[in-house]
């Protein structure tokens, strides 16, 4: 047993995973960074261009639009998804008849391929043939019909709603797992102390789900920074890139326009933005915790 748990053996057992991680995760990132400093069409030898692809990012109006759209999708999704999934998990945590079926239905959008989700929502959101505008027109509320997709402003908001719909069950399931881990004694003690259900929620449930909230928010951030298929299916980034997000713009620049170097600069910028955003959030979370601990003292 001692032989088995020696440091050498631990390293040996980690080696296959580390090698695969290096080959399939880190190496592509390093290669992408290398290409981001080149002008390359995918054929021939890449031509080194220094920082010019990165400089171009700041003067490229479509990149700015894609970045703005990604942030709109992120903020709206966070606003809908985190409270929505938390409230849903509270409901799913109640004892009721048919709970298993309800939980399964609630999780079902998460197992549909995103490209199919996009297709389903085209039939709901399309301004001309979509369910929403057709319904509004039929009941005499034609003035409330909008260009939910394909217009100049609303597409990222619609994408956020679609993303929230798809991920609600998944995020709620993680909250639910967190809820089941909270000891029942704490609620009994709070009951004895005369705390209302709302007070129990604020002072027991939410503080004890601190780490679950953190995990879910990080998950939502990464989900939103890699949204691709939904946008592709809803609008393909159109009209004229106005609904592009970072990944769709990176894809069209790299593979449709054949600008591999610039496309990789967009990919690296997206990676950096995701890391910075997730890091900033974690920093704020830790800071908030320290402040509340100090106040507690």
């Amino acid at each position: 047993m001692r032989w088995f748990s020696s440091n050498k053996n631990k390293l040996l057992m980690l080696l296959p995973t580390v090698l695969l991680y290096l080959a399939y995760i880190l190496m592509p990132i390093v290669i992408a960074i290398y290409y981001s400093f080149t002008k390359f069409t995918g054929i021939g030898t890449p031509q080194y261009v220094g920082m010019s692809n990165y400089q171009r990012l700041f003067s490229d109006p479509i990149f700015i639009i894609a970045l703005k759209n990604t942030f709109i999708v992120l903020f709206v999704t966070l606003l809908i998804l985190i409270p929505g999934a938390f409230l849903l998990s509270l409901l799913l945590n109640k004892k009721m008849k048919g709970l298993g079926t309800i939980r399964a239905i609630n999780y079902s959008p998460s197992i549909i391929a995103p490209i199919m989700v996009g297709l389903i929502w085209v039939f709901i959101l399309d301004p001309q043939i979509g369910l929403i505008n057709t319904f509004l027109t039929k009941i005499g509320l034609g003035e409330l019909t909008f260009q939910w997709i394909g217009g100049e402003t609303l597409t990222p908001f619609s994408v956020a709603i679609v993303q929230s719909w798809q991920s609600l069950g998944y995020i709620a399931t993680i909250f639910l797992a967190g809820l089941t881990l909270i000891p029942k004694d704490l609620y009994e003690a709070a009951d004895i102390d005369g705390a209302s259900k709302f007070q129990q929620l604020i002072h027991v449930t939410i503080p004890l789900l601190n780490e679950t909230f953190k995990l879910n928010i990080i998950l939502v951030i990464t989900l939103c920074f890699k949204i691709f298929e939904t946008v592709l299916q809803l609008t393909n980034g159109g009209p004229n890139h106005l609904s592009d997000v970072l990944v769709t713009y990176m894809y069209s620049t790299t593979f449709t326009a054949g600008e591999y170097g610039y496309g990789m600069a967009i990919a690296v910028a997206s990676l950096v933005a995701t890391i910075l955003f997730a890091g900033a959030f974690l920093g704020l979370f830790t800071l908030g915790k320290r402040v509340s601990n100090k106040e507690g003292v």
Binding site: G238, P239, N240, S252, A257, G258, E259
Partner: peptide, 14 residues
């Protein structure tokens, strides 16, 4: 080049 061709498509549909 492909990048310019794509800009032409974009301009017409724009």
């Amino acid at each position: 080049p492909e990048a310019i061709a794509n800009a032409m498509y974009d301009s017409i549909y724009g």
